[in-house]
Structure formats: structure tokens, C-alpha cells
């Protein structure tokens, strides 16, 4: 039963990792950009949530109402102001610029919020649990997983069923020809980053409710998101959810064997997938 419990908890944790990954996957899909600062942007979402909660006394989940649009706006401005200038055939500029951005963000967090770990208080939500078939499941992890499924379904819908998604796919297919359709790729990229950071805001708030975070927490979140993307297969959003679940389960099962093995087990699961299925379990685009 303990093992079943570990697997179920890991699955739910995977929802959070899928949320870390979804934004990464989205912007890679649309503009082939790999954002090293992605983890720090998740943490930015958490700090913004914390700020709103402290200023207004709102429940952290309600803070989403402010944080999601703020992060989306930041995403649009960031993309149009800086990141669009780095896109091209050379992979160095986007990598190094987002790396620089990561360092800047971390130090801004340090200045603004000190190095002390912070956490958002979600009240009873944090401790509430339901018992299902002898397992006690936290309401927060369940909610997180449900949100992850909803977010991925929503992104999937936007991508494949709306004019915006059509534009995303067209620009991703062929930037030049997409311009001929009247699509301004800079604007489309800005919208894609806005959408990605809206998702990132949700991920950040859920992270900040679940665990404490500090200015350097972003690196690990980038890595988890990245591992979920690669395990699931590039360009496949549902695959990303499965990737997140595999990572989460590996971590909770690893922790069950030995607490020190929690994170290591997740990375090893990733490396094993990389060794036997280098394109991930459900690849869609080669990239």
C-alpha cells in the first residue's frame, strides 16, 4: 500500500511538473526558443503571488487573477523587447541572453525578497485531504493535477481549434510564408510568450503554496520542466503531462527507497529515457 501511495502521490506531483513544462514546450513549439530563465520566471510568478497576498490578504489562488495577466504582459514585453532580437539560425544568442536574464532575475529576487525561503499560506487547502480507497489524497495535489490537465487541455484547444493556434502553427511551420498571410511574427511570438508565462504564473503560485521557495529555486524547476518535455517527447503537450508524471513518480518512489535519492531518482529516470528513447516516449516534432 505504501508503494501504491508513493506512485499516486508521484502522479499528482507530476501535474505540477507538467505545468512547469507546458510553457517551455509551448514556446519551443512556436519559435524554437529554449528559455534558460524559464525556472526563474516560475519563481517570479510565486513572488508576485506572495506580493499580492501580502498586500491584499487575498487567498493565493485568488491572487492568480492579478498574477496571470501580469505575467502575460511581462511575457509579451520580454519577447518583443529582448527575445525577438535573439531569434535566428544561431542558437547562442537566445541561450546566452536567457541565461543572463536568469542571473538578473535571481539577483532581483535577492534584492527584493532576501535569500530567506518564502511560502504562501493557502489555509485549510494545504492540509485538507480526501480518502480514496484507503489512500489519503491531499486536496491541494489533487487540485494541482486537475489544473494541470485543464491547462494542457486548454492549450491543446487553443493550438488546434482557434485562429490564434492556427497562427502559432503557421509561424512555427514557415515564418516567411506566415508573414505573407499578414502575420507579424514578432507579435505572434509575443503572444506565445504571453500565453506561456500565463501558464507559468499558475505553476509559480501552485509551487509557492506547495513548498517554500527562494531566489535560487528556479534552476531546479527549469530542469524538471525540461525533463518532463524530453521524456514526453518534444512538441507533444499530452506527452509532457505523462513526462511530468513519470518524473514525479520516479521522485516519490526514489524517496521511498531513501530520502536522499528523491531528486537523483528523477534525473536517473530522465537519463534512462534519454538512453533508450532519445526522442522521448511520444515525439511529435523533430527539433
Amino acid at each position: 500500500m505504501d508503494w501504491v501511495n508513493a506512485i499516486v502521490q508521484g502522479t499528482l506531483l507530476g501535474g505540477l511538473y507538467a505545468l512547469f513544462a507546458a510553457g517551455l514546450s509551448l514556446i519551443f513549439g512556436v519559435m524554437r526558443l529554449v528559455n534558460i530563465a524559464h525556472g526563474d520566471l516560475i519563481v517570479l510568478g510565486a513572488y508576485l503571488g506572495l506580493t499580492v497576498v501580502m498586500a491584499t490578504g487575498l487567498h493565493p489562488l485568488l491572487a492568480l487573477v492579478f498574477v496571470v495577466p501580469t505575467m502575460a504582459a511581462i511575457g509579451y514585453v520580454l519577447q518583443r523587447g529582448i527575445l525577438n532580437k535573439t531569434l535566428g539560425d544561431d542558437i547562442l544568442p537566445p541561450l546566452l541572453v536567457t541565461f543572463g536574464l536568469s542571473v538578473i532575475l535571481q539577483n532581483l529576487f535577492l534584492e527584493g525578497y532576501t535569500a530567506d525561503p518564502q511560502k504562501m499560506n493557502a489555509g485549510v487547502l494545504e492540509t485538507a485531504s480526501v480518502s480514496v480507497g484507503g489512500l489519503s489524497l491531499g486536496v491541494l495535489p489533487l487540485l494541482t493535477f486537475a489544473i494541470a490537465v485543464a491547462v494542457i487541455a486548454g492549450l491543446q484547444f487553443i493550438f488546434y481549434r482557434t485562429p490564434l493556434g492556427r497562427s502559432f502553427r503557421a509561424v512555427s511551420d514557415n515564418q516567411e510564408i506566415a508573414q505573407l498571410m499578414g502575420l507579424n511574427k514578432r507579435h505572434i511570438f509575443g503572444l506565445a510568450m504571453a500565453l506561456a508565462l500565463a501558464v507559468t504564473a499558475i505553476a509559480g503560485i501552485l509551487l509557492g503554496i506547495r513548498t517554500s521557495f527562494d531566489p535560487t529555486a528556479g534552476g531546479a524547476r527549469l530542469i524538471y520542466g525540461f525533463e518532463a518535455v524530453i521524456i514526453g517527447g518534444l512538441g507533444n503537450l499530452w506527452g509532457t503531462l505523462i513526462g511530468g508524471v513519470i518524473l514525479g513518480v520516479a521522485q516519490t518512489v526514489g524517496a521511498k527507497i531513501d530520502p536522499g535519492w528523491q531528486l537523483l531518482a528523477g534525473h536517473i529516470a530522465f537519463l534512462v529515457v534519454l538512453a533508450i528513447r532519445p526522442n522521448g516516449l511520444f515525439p511529435r516534432v523533430s527539433g
Partner: peptide, 25 residues
């Protein structure tokens, strides 16, 4: 409007979506 050399349709769009995106203006 340009009909480009070599057609250059969007491979991840369906026929109808290719037409619709042409009409997005």
C-alpha cells in the same frame, strides 16, 4: 498576395486551415 514558388503550404495545417489563414486579414 503572393503565391510562392513551390507552393509552400503549412504542413501542420489542414487544407481548410491553410485557406482560412490566408483569409485572416
Amino acid at each position: 498576395a503572393l503565391v510562392p514558388e513551390g507552393r509552400q503550404l503549412f504542413p501542420s495545417l489542414s487544407v481548410e486551415e491553410n485557406l482560412l489563414i490566408g483569409g485572416r486579414l
